[in-house]
Amino acid sequence: MFKKVVLALAVALVGLGAVVASRPSTYHIERSITVAAPVDLPFGLVNDFHKWKYWSPWDALDPKMKKTFDGPYAGPGAIYAWSGNKDAGKGQMTILESQPYESIRILLEFSEPWASTNTTTFTFQPVAEGIRVTWAMDGQNGFLGKAFSLFLDMDGMLGKDFDKGLATIKSLTEGEAKNRREREARLKAKAEEAAQAPAPAAAPQATTTTP
């Protein structure tokens, strides 16, 4: 009886291993949103790691998270490293490529809670309503990752965070775009008011007489 149980377990493990091995070796997550704002606003929020605290869905996971910045202040070569609690984990991001107002490619490396390397890409495409911002992530599934994929849907798990981050980018940039329009309107009104104002009367010239 015991041998039969052991044999059944062995067959089950082999079968499970075969199922895990058959899972996709890569994964792709992608979300998009349309922003009614000049492209420099959403691009700037992504291209500068110092500004990620304003919109990143993961930045608030640990209020005491340690952060360090290295390399250029923004753009290619900029590095952002973090170390936080079990929810935030530990890792770093490096901007590999930044095409102004078109795309940003980032190397995302996790060391905790497990090691993984992913590529994150942001693209900014002009559309009739404004700018279409797309956030995508591509990664590799090792055996452990394939096993997790049997129970966890990466797209469903991270996709909601992408949606949240993009929604915050939309809110921030559209708010700033509105502020810009209002500032420009006030400056234009002042310029027009100054142009229409009557010129100041010339001061009378002093005259001298010869005694």
Score class of each variant (00 low, 15 high):
residue 55 W to E: 01
residue 176 E to Q: 14
residue 211 P to W: 08
residue 15 G to Q: 06
residue 25 S to T: 14
residue 146 K to E: 00
residue 136 A to K: 12
residue 105 R to N: 14
residue 182 E to G: 03
residue 64 K to A: 13
residue 90 K to H: 11
residue 25 S to P: 06
residue 9 L to I: 15
residue 19 V to W: 13
residue 150 L to K: 07
residue 104 I to C: 04
residue 179 N to T: 14
residue 193 E to I: 00
residue 163 D to Q: 09
residue 72 P to S: 09
residue 156 G to D: 07
residue 110 F to T: 00
residue 2 F to Q: 02
residue 206 A to T: 15
residue 83 S to T: 10
residue 36 A to M: 05
residue 78 A to D: 05
residue 65 M to G: 07
residue 33 I to T: 15
residue 194 A to T: 04
residue 198 P to M: 06
residue 188 K to H: 07
residue 152 L to K: 04
residue 153 D to Y: 02
residue 61 L to C: 02
residue 38 P to F: 01
residue 52 W to D: 06
residue 101 Y to K: 11
residue 185 A to T: 09
residue 24 P to K: 09
residue 134 T to W: 12
residue 178 K to P: 11
residue 98 S to D: 04
residue 128 A to E: 15
residue 162 F to R: 03
residue 24 P to N: 06
residue 85 N to T: 03
residue 185 A to E: 09
residue 69 F to T: 03
residue 77 G to M: 07
residue 102 E to N: 15
residue 84 G to H: 12
residue 209 T to P: 03
residue 116 S to H: 03
residue 26 T to H: 15
residue 185 A to N: 06
residue 121 T to Q: 07
residue 117 T to N: 06
residue 182 E to K: 08
residue 199 A to L: 09
residue 78 A to W: 00
residue 101 Y to C: 08
residue 28 H to Y: 14
residue 145 G to C: 01
residue 98 S to C: 06
residue 63 P to C: 09
residue 69 F to A: 04
residue 59 D to W: 08
